[in-house]
Design a protein around this nucleic acid. Structure first.
Length: 500
RNA sequence: GCCCCCAUCGUCUAGAGGCCUAGGACGCCACCCUUUCAAGGUGGAGAUCACCGGUUCGAAUCCGGUUGGGGGUACCA
């Protein structure tokens, strides 16, 4: 059912895709999909000094990776740019802003301001000293044409300032109901065009949202105090004012606004650590929203179906990595074999390149491992820690770990030797987990050892670790040859320990 | 400082006047399962619903104030 509801995400390519941006994009996307509206992406690249195409790529790639798709904007379905309101990059829309600014100037809703940064700075300091709120003093607000001409003649450059009218601006916010702000708190007439002619955020966002027929502006709570400025601009330009909805912020664990300093904010970093898109999307959705039921695990498709702006929380939500990891485990367990293999491979390749493993397992070998690793992966990257020892040539075993707590050095040596013999008795045909186990249990019983101690000695000797997937499955994965070779190496080492 | 917003277990939240002796999930603890680690199961600790005052027969839910926290206050977005 088509709808004329149009929403957007408007990232600025001045940094890598931030978790907050991803979450805002997700909420806009879910809202649009839920109501059958249109979701578009617009690049706000007017901060030329800080914008880069590398960041732009990171943002688009990251959103795509999450499974968030947009109907209009750069990178739709592999196309450079698509949609009836193109271009969707602000630096390519400069004429639109210039036209709008000229209109405001002509109507005297805006005026050229010749104040220098030094003058402005002095104003600010004076206000601070007088304990007044910082605001533009209006030095250039009432310049006569002659005065302006004089300044131009001096070669002074001007910015364009928007006249803020006195009064109260209010709106019915989708998540926090009625909000009203007196324009006297806006800091005076604000700049909409820089001295170099490039437009500023407050201006471009309004011009573009109007030009692109955005019906609902859904953004972070940090924009609440900007909204009056935007409404004033919509009105001055003669545009319909869209509906606003301000989402609660994602907070650092200490409750402050999420920052790079205190949290990991780049989506790319989460990807690199082995979080799966399903978990990230699921987690982001539940930061500030809940279905009102006790269900916790939702796919993107389910979210599209269930998401309602009405159920969005008002207060900010702290980022809880433990909970994200739990959800990640939930989703990893739900992936089918082919899918999981495809996602694991890049992490093994990276470990191979980094020299953490000496060999890359063929797909079949990895597939056979899935039943014993799937439940043990909080993130994809942990595959290397979990079973990386299967693919290293030289196993590094900590001698202190080789001896089980309850055993002495001699018992350890005897145990390993006896285990080696029992294991060597198997041929390729009986190299199976349930064939390997009974003889070793019998051996432990015959010698009066605890099976767990024997198994631990074998585990450490063959994997170098005290925590692994089930031992016999691990040995099967390791292979007869490597298992025996590692036991031999351990026996030699332990023999040296016993002899002192 | 000024403006705005918010306020239920440590964390994410359910709750839209009686169903709440406040439910779920993460985390934590214990037990079960068990060769280790996980996963899973069972149970437990954990919230005087920030505080005070109203409204009401009745308030976590409505109103006011206080306190606390957060956001904003650019020729950044």
């Amino acid at each position: 059912m088509p709808s004329d509801i149009r929403v957007r995400i408007a990232p600025s390519p001045t940094g890598p895709l931030h978790i907050g941006t991803a979450r805002t994009a997700l909420f806009n996307y879910l809202f649009a999909r839920h109501v059958g509206g249109t979701f578009l992406l617009r690049l706000e690249d007017t901060d030329v000094a800080r914008s880069t195409t590398a960041f732009e790529k990171d943002i688009l790639d990251g959103l795509h990776w999450l499974g968030i798709t947009w109907d209009e904007g750069p990178g739709v379905a592999g196309v450079e740019e698509a949609g009836p309101y193109a271009p969707y990059r602000q630096m390519q829309r400069l004429d639109t802003y210039a036209e709008a600014a000229a209109r405001l100037l002509l109507a005297d809703r805006a005026y050229p301001c010749y104040c220098t940064p030094e003058e402005l700075d002095a104003d600010r300091r004076a206000q601070e000293a007088a304990k007044e709120a910082p605001r533009y003093v209006g030095r250039c607000a009432a310049l006569t044409p002659a005065q302006r001409a004089a300044r131009e003649a001096q070669g002074r450059r001007s910015v364009t300032r928007f006249r803020v009218r006195p009064g109260v601006v209010g709106w019915n916010d989708l998540v926090r109901d009625r909000v009203e702000i007196d324009t006297s708190n806006l800091g005076g007439d604000f700049v909409i065009v820089r001295a170099d002619g490039t437009p500023l955020y407050h201006f471009t966002v309004v011009v573009d949202d109007a030009a692109m027929a955005i019906s609902h502006v859904i953004r972070g709570e940090d924009h609440v105090s900007n909204t009056p400025k935007h409404i004033l601009l919509f009105e001055a330009l003669g545009y319909a004012v869209p509906v606003f909805g301000h989402l609660p912020l994602i907070l650092n664990p200490d409750g402050t606004k999420m920052s790079k300093r205190k949290s990991q904010t780049a989506v790319a970093d989460y990807i690199a650590q082995g979080f799966v898109r399903e978990a990230l999307v699921n987690y982001f959705a539940f930061l500030g929203w809940s279905p009102g039921t006790e269900e916790e695990v939702f796919s993107l498709a389910e979210l599209e179906q269930r998401f309602e702006l009405e159920k969005v929380q008002k207060g900010g939500a702290r980022f809880d990595r433990e909970r994200l990891e739990w959800l990640n485990g939930q989703w990893i367990r739900r992936l089918d074999d082919d899918d999981l293999i495809g996602r694991l491979l890049p992490f093994l390749e990276a470990a191979h390149v980094a020299g953490q493993i000496d060999r890359l397992p063929p797909e079949g070998e990895l597939r056979a491992l899935l039943p014993i690793v799937r439940e043990r992966l909080p993130t994809l990257a942990t595959i290397v820690d979990l079973v990386g020892y299967l693919w290293v040539d030289e196993l590094d075993v900590d001698p202190a770990l080789l001896r089980p707590r309850r055993w002495d050095a001699a018992t350890t040596l005897a145990g390993l030797a006896a285990a080696r013999e029992a294991i060597a008795a198997h041929d390729a045909v009986t190299w199976e987990a349930d064939e390997l186990e009974p003889p070793l249990r019998a051996l432990a019983e015959a010698r009066g050892w605890r099976a767990g101690d024997l198994f631990m000695a074998i585990r450490v000797a063959t994997t170098g670790r005290t925590a692994t997937p089930p031992l016999f499955d691990t040995l099967v994965a390791l292979g007869r040859e490597r298992t025996l070779a590692r036991l031999d190496a351990a026996i030699v080492r332990q023999g040296a320990v016993v002899r002192g």
